[in-house]
């Protein structure tokens, strides 16, 4: 089965980018550039909103179009279809696709140094570590079952000992005790649950051996070849955005009440909680969006525990070096 991009599509893109490259510098003042986010608008993407609003992308001659995600949106699909230049993905799915299907992806940066996904439970019925899950009911979004199985395997737990049911985006079954725990962003759900007058506790899969990034920045090999400078510019501006965001995590979410966060169905207070909670998960001695050798090594090690055998060359750190 051939999994290469079709040739006409490739030639078209290549020709278009060659045409752009040949233009004089001033005419390149705003290169159209599209990014595909992983979910609906929330604090998870604050750094990009700042970089758009404050003109950091414009400083890099990029005219950024931002596409939000949703349950049916597979970010990697958007870049394969040529509708976006970069996508924010989960590294397990991306690397599995490269290994299994020969998908032409490269990971060029990572937003979360520690994956914020964790096991959330109620203080009244706490799940404090993986072995507490034995005999319990855990709700997991079907797309994340792969991560949970990895964490269980790394901790020597038979997945058959945990009753895994689908998580339908609604914490009500957890609050009402229909399930014992759910898998979700630990930066987000504990707040929602506290709003219902119940206290939540959580732990990260990352802290129990599943040491992967999240919101990895993924491009196709052809985009990497054709738009390298734009990608470096995008990474640089995005890093600026995140630096600005964490100067005061309480500052930005209220400003977007009527823009980025208008009508999302979520509250600004929730976004402020989210923004504070995600700071320690994103910081890296090498700067925001960074990928260190130890980090990449940890990703590959964790994934190999579930039979996803990625290699170092699936990560390209040379763009980060150019920032």
């Amino acid at each position: 089965m051939s999994l290469k991009l079709d040739r006409r599509h490739f030639l078209g893109t290549a020709a278009a980018s060659a045409a752009v490259a040949s233009l004089p510098l001033r005419a390149r003042a705003s290169t159209p550039f599209t990014m595909q986010a992983a979910w609906i608008n929330d604090a998870e993407f604050a750094g990009y909103f700042i970089a758009i609003d404050e003109g950091y992308y414009a400083d890099e001659s990029l005219d950024v179009t931002y596409l939000s995600g949703g349950p049916d949106v597979i970010p990697e699909s958007t870049i394969i279809a040529g509708r976006a230049d970069v996508a924010l993905t989960t590294p397990d799915t991306t690397i599995k696709a490269i290994v299994d299907q020969g998908a032409p992806f490269k990971i060029i940066g990572a937003q979360y140094q520690k994956n914020p996904i964790g096991i959330v439970s109620l203080v009244s019925n706490p799940i404090n570590e993986p072995k507490d899950l034995i005999g319990k009911t855990l709700a997991v979004p079907p797309v994340n079952v792969i991560s949970v199985n990895a964490m269980l395997a790394l901790n020597g737990i038979d997945p058959a000992d945990v009753n895994i049911v689908p998580y339908a985006y609604d914490p009500t079954p957890l609050i009402r005790g229909e399930i014992d725990a759910s898998l979700d962003f630990t930066t987000n759900v504990p707040y929602t649950i506290s709003q219902q007058g119940v206290e939540a506790t959580s732990f990260l899969l990352y802290d129990f051996g599943f040491t992967i990034y999240n919101d990895t920045v993924v491009v196709t090999e052809e985009t990497l070849a054709a738009k390298r400078q734009d990608l470096v510019g995008w990474l640089r501006a995005s890093r600026r955005g995140w630096e600005e965001n964490f100067k005061d995590p309480n500052l930005w979410p209220p400003k977007w009440k009527d823009s980025w966060f208008a009508g999302t169905g979520r509250t600004i207070e929730n976004e402020i909680f989210f923004n504070n909670a995600q700071q320690p998960l994103m910081e890296s001695p090498a700067g925001f969006m960074a990928m260190t050798e130890e980090g990449i090594e940890a990703n590959l090690r964790a994934l190999s525990a579930v039979g996803i055998n990625g290699t170092r060359d699936m990560f390209d750190t040379t763009l980060l070096d150019e920032i």
Binding site: I40, P71, Y169, D170, P171, N188, T192, Q196, G265
Partner: peptide
């Protein structure tokens, strides 16, 4: 609806 589901 999707954004609101998470609020319980």
């Amino acid at each position: 609806l999707l954004g609101s589901l998470g609020r319980g």
